[in-house]
Amino acid sequence: ASWTGRAPASPASAPRPSGARRRCSAARVRAPDGRPGRLDDAVAVAANNDFSMALRRDGTVVTWGEGSSGQRGTGERTAPPVPTTVRAPDGRGALTGVTAIAADGHTELVLRGDGQVLAWGANAGGMVGDGTREDRALPVPVRGLDGAARLDGAVRIAIGGQHGLALLRDGRVAAWGRNELGQLGDGTRQDRLTPVLVSGVGGEGVLDGVAAVASAEKHNYALRGDGTIVAWGNNTAGQLGDGTVQPRTAPVTVVGRSAPKLRGAARVFAGEAYGAAILTDGTLLTWGAGGSGQLGSGKRTPRSRPGTALTAAGTVPADALSVGVGERHLILLLRSGAP
């Protein structure tokens, strides 16, 4: 099932890599680095802003699309018309050991099996997390907390609009990059060139007990082990789900449909200015911007607290498995046979 409205058209003059042409039907991605055949053994993909990347079974990463900020990860700022393999930080050979990827289209993140996070690409806001504002055409380690050389112990990553998040093994969350709307959750609006810990709810202490994170352009969610969700950052359309439209520089609790706290959440997703959660019973809840119908509420109005989505027949969809969130549309995956 999907709900959608009209999204802004892509500018006809948007630059494309040399030799690229538009496709109106599906096409197989070519093997990287000019080798014959097709890209295979992919286990995950990510895409944004004229850029795509794939994680392969052997722990290497392949990129294609825009490259002017070094986001191809090859050491060059070019956009070859064929996929290329991301290189190691020293430029010698391929980057290996990667277990997760996150694409912004300008700045890219990867997580390695040893818990290390690396980044490359645009860095004007410090979103590479290496302590500088210098664009990086090769991966560099994201710096650690309190001046450590690198961030270790990460188990999940997410990237929003010019900021990154890493969920640490101990349930805390590290954030870095742009912070003009409090999207780093550290209680300030100060950009951070290296990671800082997200504050606790209301700015008290440090946020902990987190099981998953989701990031959008200027706001973020953290799903806690007790099934509650906290949010921070921009809130002009009610995307923090706390019943207000007030931006928050530290996490606030997402409220329930008719309760002070949403409970029983199993998964959380971040759209451009809205959010979605799937509960343990398979119920889908949405909140935030709704002008294009992306909340599936039957209306085109925003809402600042979670509410149920509806099908075209006016029924509440059951047995939700996952959600795909676009800028202004949402796609819901249901269990086979669900109404």
Score class of each variant (00 low, 15 high):
Gly326Leu: 06
Pro81Thr: 13
Val110Trp: 12
Arg38Pro: 01
Trp176Lys: 03
Pro317Tyr: 12
Ala289Phe: 12
Thr78Arg: 10
Gly324Pro: 08
Trp64Phe: 14
Leu295Ser: 02
Val323Cys: 09
Ser10Val: 15
Asn123Val: 10
Gly97Lys: 00
Leu262Glu: 08
Ser304Glu: 11
Ala312Cys: 12
Thr283Phe: 08
Thr283Ile: 03
Val252Trp: 00
Asp152Glu: 13
Gly73Met: 11
Arg172Cys: 13
Ile157Leu: 03
Ala289Asn: 07
Ala124Phe: 11
Thr63Leu: 13
Gly73Gln: 09
Asn49Glu: 09
Arg112Ile: 04
Pro247Arg: 15
Glu108Phe: 00
Thr283Leu: 13
Ser69Leu: 06
Thr280Ser: 13
Glu134Tyr: 10
Ser304His: 03
Leu207Asp: 02
Leu193Met: 05
Leu138Ala: 06
Arg30Asn: 08
Lys299Trp: 12
Ile157Phe: 02
Val316Lys: 02
Gly126Asp: 00
Gly200Ile: 05
Gly105Phe: 06
Thr236His: 07
Arg22Met: 14
Leu138Glu: 10
Asp208Met: 06
Ser297Asn: 08
Val173Cys: 06
Pro195Thr: 08
Gly121Tyr: 10
Ala88Trp: 05
Gly227Glu: 07
Gly34Ala: 04
Arg22Glu: 14
Ser68Asn: 14
Arg300Gln: 15
Ser297Pro: 07
Ala149Leu: 07
Ile101Asp: 05
Gly177Tyr: 03
Gln116Ser: 09
Pro339Cys: 08
Asn220Thr: 09
Val206Asn: 03
Ala20Glu: 14
Glu66Lys: 12
Ala31Leu: 02
Thr194Leu: 13
Ala31Trp: 05
Asp226Phe: 01
Leu181Arg: 14
Gly153Thr: 03
Val245Gln: 07
Gln239Glu: 15
Asp50Gly: 10
Arg56Ala: 04
Asp191Phe: 00
Gly121Gln: 12
Arg303Gly: 13
Val142Glu: 13
Asp242Thr: 09
Arg300His: 15
Leu279Gly: 12
Gly115Glu: 08
Val117Glu: 00
His219Tyr: 15
Ser322Glu: 04
Arg38Asp: 05
Gly37Trp: 04
Ser13Phe: 11
Gly37Lys: 07
Gly187Ile: 04
Gly73Cys: 11
Gly19Ile: 02
Ser13Met: 06
Leu332Trp: 01
Arg150Gln: 13
Gly307Met: 13
Asp191Ser: 11
Ala211Lys: 05
Leu95Pro: 05
Ala103Met: 04
Gly200Arg: 01
Gly241Val: 07
Gly314Arg: 04
Leu167Cys: 02
Ala320Tyr: 10
Asp104Tyr: 02
Leu118Thr: 11
Thr308Trp: 06
Leu285Glu: 11
His329Gly: 07
Ile157Cys: 09
Phe51Pro: 00
Gly324Phe: 10
Lys261Tyr: 05
Pro139Thr: 09
Val252Lys: 04
Gly290Met: 07
Gly337Arg: 03
Gly227His: 14
Ala42Trp: 05
Ala320Ile: 08
Arg38Val: 11
